[in-house]
């Protein structure tokens, strides 16, 4: 890959207090523009912290982080504003800060984005009238509304049921192919990582380091029950278990 990376981390470490535990240690990572990278690790390994650092919500203790523009972020909860309709929630991202579009333009763009996640019919519904999967898609549309080349996703489908999650994987993959975003997707679900990523990065716990990575040949959409995903999942799970055992010792 010759293009400048969309995200480049060099020797990034994070420690919340000087005498506290080292959460992240010596992370070197570069993500190419348009790449779909999955960050995989057990709970509490610091993957969410790493995402917050890339998002600029927190500052690293050591090392440098370069991001092409700023990143859009999607969380595990949809975190929609409950008093606004789906469309108005998406419009919010078009109104704040540097976006500052005029009202009719915001409206049109929001409807376009809701259509992209197949929610044009639900534009005037409020969050409580939507299912969990629909709310996450509104959140996805809102993250896309920011028009940033990098999209960070922090376990966005973890709270959903398996059927909905499976369909949302397809949606996300389609949106990724259509919009050409660079995606960093944090998850603790091995199959999800193997299903979605072009690259899977395995993190160890305490301190959080990237200990292994797999590249997956991108020959079009693959299904979560496909042999490729299964084989890779078995292999990654082996490594993950070894990491966890190492911590027990």
């Amino acid at each position: 890959m010759t293009a400048a990376p969309a995200i480049r981390l060099t020797g990034v470490g994070k420690q919340y207090a000087a005498d506290g535990p080292v959460v992240l240690d010596g992370i070197d990572l570069s993500v190419a523009p348009g790449e779909f990278a999955c960050l995989l690790g057990a709970s509490g390994c610091g993957k969410s912290t790493l995402l917050s650092l890339i998002a600029g919500l927190e500052q690293p203790s050591t090392g440098t982080i370069e991001v092409d523009g700023r990143a859009a972020v999607m969380f595990q909860e949809a975190s929609l504003l409950p008093w606004l309709s789906a469309r108005r929630n998406v419009e919010l991202a078009l109104r704040f800060g540097d976006a500052g579009l005029a009202r009719p333009a915001r409206r049109a763009r929001a409807l376009e984005l809701l259509d992209l996640v197949h929610l044009a019919d639900a534009a005037d519904k409020r969050p409580h009238e939507l299912s969990g999967g629909m709310r996450q898609r509104v959140a996805l549309a809102r993250a896309l509304a920011q028009d940033r080349s990098v999209l960070l996703m922090d376990e966005p489908f973890a709270a959903l049921d398996a059927i909905t999650r499976d369909l949302l994987h397809e949606e996300l993959e389609r949106v990724w192919r259509e919009t050409g975003r660079t995606i960093v997707f944090v998850t603790h679900n091995v199959r999800e990582a193997a299903r979605l990523g072009q690259r899977v990065l395995l993190m160890s716990s305490r301190p959080g380091r990237i200990v292994n990575e797999w590249r997956i040949a991108d020959d079009g959409p693959r299904r979560i029950e496909s042999p490729t995903v299964s084989e890779l999942s078995v292999e990654i799970t082996e490594h993950l278990r070894r990491e966890i055992r190492r911590n027990a010792a």
Binding site: F75, S79, F96
Partner: peptide
């Protein structure tokens, strides 16, 4: 947090 992330 969401408001901040959205650039408010």
């Amino acid at each position: 947090r969401v408001g901040t992330v959205l650039g408010a």
